[in-house]
Every structure is written in structure tokens, then in C-alpha cells.
Amino acid sequence: MLIRKADEQDLDAVCRLAEQINRQHHLAMPELFRDEIDPAAELAFWRERMEGEDRAILLAEREGQVLAFATLMLQTPPPMPFLQPRRICRLGTIVVDEAHQGQGLGSRLMLAAEDWGRRQQADELRLEVMAFNQRAHALYLRQGLAPQSQIMSKLLTGDAQ
């Protein structure tokens, strides 16, 4: 298996995999994730994630077939007097093709993400994961990530209770 940085020719494969993870998220949280996505907008979204020195999409590829990807972006939060300055490698999306899950692709991408972050002189790798996605939680824990904070939300639209 080869892990490499994506380029323009990989956008169709990225969109195909993104459709899988979006479907999973929409089924679990339709109030948050759309069922249908405008193809042109989606293409532009993923293209933006690969352009610039501070971001990358890493692909896991076997025999010329893209089986998984992860998006990475460097962030330097504004200085705050009560926080240590940090350079963060943010993992935005990671998805493994449904037909190839459980084969170690996610783990390999996570290690590649860490390596990319180190090469960019990041202090830490950070990500956000939906509470329903227990399979992803387990992967991240196996890879040595630990909870740092928790995002909580309450819908303010719709029926009031």
C-alpha cells in the first residue's frame, strides 16, 4: 500500500469516499448533515483542502485504487494569556472505503498524518469526532489520542420543549 499526497487528479476518488462518510453521518444525524450535496460545491470544498503549504489530503492507495484519505491543516491559534502557544495539525476528515475497513488503512493514515504534522513542526495532532462514531473513537484511542475537551450542542430550531 502507498500513502501519498493527493493532487487534482484524485478529486473524483476523494469525492467518492466523502460520499460514503457523509451518508454515514447523515443517517446518524440528519439534523446536522445533508442528504444531498451539490457536486460542484463538494469538488471545490475538497480542492481547497489540498491547496497550500499548510494543508494536505493524504491518500491510501493499493494497485492504483484510492481506498482511504485524511485531510490535514496546520493551525496556530491566536495568543491567549492563559494558554501555551501551540502549532496544531488538525485532522479534519478521515475516511476508509466501506469495502476495505478493518484492514489497517485508518491506522496507517493516522501514522502518516502524525509524520506530516511533525514535518510541519506541529506540537500536536488534534481532531473532532462525532459521539455516535464509536468505531472512529476506538481507532483514535488505539493510535494514542486522548480526549482533551468535549463539544456539546443543543438545537435551537424546531419544536421547543
Rank of each mutant, 00 (worst) to 15 (best):
Q20S: 09
S149F: 10
P77Y: 06
R47E: 11
Q65I: 12
G52P: 04
D38V: 06
Q134N: 10
H100R: 14
H100S: 08
L155H: 13
A146S: 11
D97E: 11
Q143S: 05
D12G: 04
M152T: 14
V96M: 03
C15P: 05
I88Q: 09
D159P: 13
P77F: 06
E63S: 09
E114K: 14
L141K: 13
M152Q: 11
L105N: 02
R126Y: 05
V66I: 13
E61A: 00
L83I: 03
I151W: 04
D54Y: 08
R108L: 03
T71F: 02
R4Q: 08
L72A: 05
G104A: 06
G52N: 07
W116N: 08
D115N: 07
L27T: 04
V129L: 03
H25C: 07
G52W: 06
R23I: 13
R47G: 06
Q150D: 09
E48K: 12
Q101E: 09
R47W: 02
R47F: 02
E63H: 05
Q65M: 08
P79W: 00
A44F: 02
G106D: 10
M1K: 10
E114N: 06
P30C: 04
Q101I: 12
M29K: 08
R62Q: 15
D123E: 08
W46C: 03
V95Y: 04
P81H: 07
H26R: 03
K5H: 10
L59C: 11
A40M: 05
Q103C: 08
E98R: 00
I151S: 08
L72H: 05
E63F: 00
R62Y: 12
T76W: 04
M110Y: 02
R118V: 15
L74K: 09
L156R: 04
E19T: 09
D97I: 03
Q101M: 11
L17I: 02
E51T: 00
H137Q: 09
F82S: 14
P147V: 13
T93Q: 10
Q84M: 03
M110C: 13
I37F: 07
E53P: 07
D97P: 00
A138T: 10
Q150S: 05
D159L: 11
Q161L: 10
T76V: 15
A28Q: 14
F33A: 12
H26Y: 14
I3G: 10
A60S: 11
V66Y: 02
D115A: 11
Q148S: 12
I37Y: 10
L59A: 10
A113M: 04
L91R: 01
Q120W: 08
Q150V: 15
L125W: 01
A160R: 15
H100F: 12
D159K: 15
Q120A: 12
T71I: 00
I88F: 03
A28K: 13
A113H: 01
L72G: 07
A138Y: 10
G102A: 05
S107L: 11
L17T: 01
L111E: 15
G64D: 06
L155T: 08
P147S: 04
E124L: 15
F69I: 01
R86G: 00
A112S: 11
E48A: 15
G158D: 07
P39C: 12
A44W: 03
H25N: 13
A113S: 14
R108C: 01
P77V: 10
M110I: 14
G117N: 07
F33Q: 11
Q121F: 00
